[in-house]
Simulated assay, not measured.
Amino acid sequence: MSDATSASAQIVDYFISLFYVFESTLDSLLKPVEETGKAVLSSLAPSLYSNVGQYFASSASPFASRLPLMNFFHVLVITLSYLGLVFGGKALMEKREKFNMRLVSLFHNLFLVLLSTYMCGTILSEAWRQGYGLFGNPVDKTERGWQMAKYTWLFYVSKIAEFMDTYIMVLKKNNRQITFLHVYHHCSIFVIWWAVVYIAPNGETYFSAALNSAVHIVMYGYYLSTTLSIPIRFIKRFITLFQMTQFTMMMIQATYDIILFRFVKADSEEKYPFDLAALLWIYMWTMLGLFANFFKKDRLREQQQKLAKKE
């Protein structure tokens, strides 16, 4: 490994160390609640609780135990806290003046541009180093797959930083932007990526993480430019099209993987989990439908604004 690659790898190791501290804090705060929650769930739905537990126990990647924030209870608490802060925050802000979030937005968007660039570059570089193809890459449970697992784990926890998008909207009272699509996407993608990293943090997983990171370089770059009052608004409509293209490519990948690993290589030991490929396929349909509806409404709103200016 070259010096540049080694230095790059140390960045993700720093984030892992940081999140171990975060996880330790969560454990100290939530352990009694977690035990009570497990006891309640096991008594209310013993069969479901047992089956789900057995599924994740049998499907777990060997790398899951070496990465922080792999406890689903922590994921659930973070997700519920996000929803509570968003809807509770909207209620609190109803009778308050909006905050000037320009400086916070500046640092937030800059951080996510830099982080997305790092994730896209390191994931693609590691895929190249490991000899990955575009599609059809099986899960690697050997030590050789550890570095890619760390990079995709970082992509998973980066979804927590993206929650700040909504908090900024709440404090700016931009409630029109806090749509079902926005909240659903932030919540669901965080939980889904927990499952992906827990079960298969390398192999085919690399494609979605690298592609989404590339989209976010453009998206947060645009948000950064608007914060700096740089007039490049024409890019806005293309961001949604870029996102929809991304979803289409992921759906193509999921279809390819379902056919390849379910039928063509059904008996092979080197596979990517069918359950994750099927989950990706279904989730991409929801994303395409919601984003297409958003794009249509956004274009209609632009046309109405243009007509209003002419009158």
Rank of each mutant, 00 (worst) to 15 (best):
M219A: 09
F99I: 02
R66F: 02
M250F: 14
D3G: 00
T152S: 14
S208T: 11
S268G: 01
S28Q: 13
Y118W: 08
L300C: 08
D275E: 14
E94C: 04
V157D: 02
A210R: 00
W281Q: 08
L228N: 07
T286Q: 11
L134E: 06
M244K: 07
S17P: 01
T117P: 00
P201W: 12
P231D: 07
V104M: 10
F99R: 12
I192T: 14
L290N: 11
Q305L: 15
I16V: 14
S28D: 10
M250L: 15
E35P: 01
L241N: 12
L103T: 15
Q304T: 10
V75H: 06
T166D: 10
S65C: 03
R299Y: 13
T226H: 09
T248Q: 00
W153L: 04
L44N: 11
M119E: 07
L26V: 05
I78F: 07
N100E: 13
H108R: 05
I78D: 03
K265T: 01
I160P: 01
A266K: 13
R66H: 12
S8T: 12
S47P: 00
I239C: 07
K90L: 11
E143Y: 04
Y220T: 06
E23F: 05
K306G: 02
L112P: 00
P273W: 03
G89N: 04
H74K: 05
H185M: 06
T179E: 10
K297P: 01
E97H: 12
E35D: 13
L279D: 01
I160L: 15
M284V: 02
L30F: 15
M250I: 10
G84Q: 04
A9I: 02
T36M: 13
L85H: 03
V52N: 05
W128F: 10
Y272E: 01
L44S: 14
V77D: 05
T36R: 15
D13V: 03
L83F: 12
E94M: 08
I160G: 02
